[in-house]
Structure formats: C-alpha cells, structure tokens
C-alpha cells in the first residue's frame, strides 16, 4: 500500500506506524535501535508486538507514546502525527512499582493523571470507582501500592489507565513481572477491558503464548536493529479462555509460526 492509497481512500488507521526508525548518536558511531518499522492498528483491535528481549520494543513504545521523537518516519493516530503524549492514549509500564507513586494511595494514584483534565469532582470520583471496579480493587482504594501484591499493583496501574478513559491502551510487557497464575488473570482482564470499554489495545511482549492468546494480530519483530518480520492474523474464536483456547490446535500452530520466525537467524 502506498501513501497516496491511504491518504486518498479509506479512513486513516487508528494507529499508523510508518517507516519508523530510531537511532542514538550520529555518524559512524550511531546506534540504530529501530530500523524501518511499519504496521497499523485498527479501532477495537488487540495487537501484540512480539520480539526477542532487547529488540527495542520499549524504545518503540516511547516513540508511540510521544515520550521521545523518532529519528525518521512517523507514528500517527487517526492520521495525526504523534509529536507529544497523545491525550487519547494511556500507557501501562512493566515496572508497576516504579510507575505507581508510593506516596499516594491507590485512589490518589488513579486521580493523579486526572487533575490536569480539571474534571468535576463527581466525575473524577465516578471514573475512579468504575476503574477500580473493572479491575476488582474497590476494597484496596485507601491502601498504598506497596501494601499490595505484584499482580494487584499492576491492576492498579491498569485501573489508572482506565480512569484516564483512553481510546488506545498501550502496555509494555505488562505481565512480565508477576507469577504465572496472576498472569493468566491479568490477560483475561485485558480482554475483558477491551470488550467492556471498546478500546484499542497495543501490547508489547516477549511471551509468544501471551501474544497469540491476546491478539487479533501479532506483529513479529526481528532484532538488531528492530524491524517487522511479519504480521500474523490470529483467528482464534472469541471469547477466549485460558484452558480451551490454549488447547486448540490452531493455537499451537500459530504459536509455532511465531516461534519459528523469532528463532530463525536473521
């Protein structure tokens, strides 16, 4: 597809990453982290970006979140090029214990990003209540994040994103720092959120099973420097279930596809 085709015909994709590149330094010493990434995410999709660790996934998310400029290429939301943190996007980091403010209670952590929106107090309260209910943490609102388990803390971070009412939820290795059982719970929470809040979700992960389980589409990255190896559509039936979905032969086939792509020497 060419630029003209996109601009002329269909409505722009929700998220459109085009020839995105990022390198640090300049000249012969420049370190190329991302080389020419192109992919799209459509409204309501869950897309997972999967690649080996150290591939530059976090750098990519920082560019998408407007936290750092790309060296070349663009990322756009609904056709608008991202040049700063987009108001319709919320980011969930892997390190919940670094991303949540330890001096604020759970509820106050949720309220922190809402202050500058200058919402009526009642709406702030309602948003926080809804978000806490969505992640099942109503009872913990007056506790501090460090009084909670890792899985609960990540749910707080997700609730904070939900209270912001984003249209696009971007998560960076969101479940990498919790135990396996909690991980399954959080994956299902992610799918529930997408359904309940009608959100577009972009997840970066190194976990192939997780990528296949969550996604409508998996973008497979190759490393050094990062580039898109291929994009795989995931046609697994919905609603998904940790036991039945994961035991489908299609699941195993998709998993094998992705794994063989990643393992193959570049």
């Amino acid at each position: 597809m060419t630029n003209e085709a996109v601009a002329g015909k269909a409505a722009p994709s929700r998220l459109d990453v085009r020839s995105l590149a990022k390198s640090y330094g300049a000249g012969a010493k420049a370190k190329v982290i991302i080389e020419d990434l192109t992919f799209t995410v459509e409204t309501g999709e869950v897309v997972c970006i999967v690649g080996p660790s150290g591939v530059g996934k976090t750098t990519l998310l920082k560019c998408l979140a407007g936290l750092q400029p790309a060296s070349s290429g663009t990322a756009a939301i609904d056709g608008r090029v991202i040049d700063g943190p987009p108001p319709e996007m919320a980011l969930v980091f892997q390190d919940y214990n670094r991303s949540l403010m330890p001096w604020l209670t759970v509820r106050k952590n949720l309220m922190l990003p809402l202050r500058h929106l200058r919402l009526p107090a009642a709406e702030t309260r309602e948003r926080c209540n809804d978000a806490l209910a969505a992640v099942g943490l109503e009872h913990a609102e007056h506790q501090y994040p460090w009084q909670l388990s890792g899985g609960m803390q990540q749910r707080v971070a997700i609730a904070r994103a939900l209270a912001y009412r984003p249209e696009i939820l971007v998560m960076d290795e969101p479940f990498a720092s919790v135990d396996a059982q909690t991980r399954f719970d959080l994956e299902d929470l992610c799918l529930k959120i997408r359904k309940d809040f009608n959100m577009t979700v972009l997840v970066v992960t190194h976990d192939i099973d997780e990528a296949v389980y969550l996604s409508d589409r998996v973008v497979v990255l190759g490393s050094k420097p990062a580039r898109v190896l291929t994009t795989i559509d995931v046609d697994l039936p919905s609603p998904r279930d940790q036991i039945t979905t994961r035991s489908l032969p299609e699941f195993a086939a998709l998993r094998t596809d992705v794994l063989s792509l990643i393992k193959r020497p570049a």
Binding site: A65, L67, M89, L91, F93, S99, L112, R115, Y164
Partner: peptide, 16 residues
C-alpha cells in the same frame, strides 16, 4: 525516570 515518563505520558505539564 519511569515515574517521570508515566506522568508525561498522561499529559502532565512540567510544573505539575
């Protein structure tokens, strides 16, 4: 830096 990035990603200004 993660706390800073979190705040920035939610559109919080420098003073805030």
């Amino acid at each position: 830096p993660v706390a800073r990035d979190t705040a920035r990603s939610y559109g919080m200004g420098r003073t805030e």
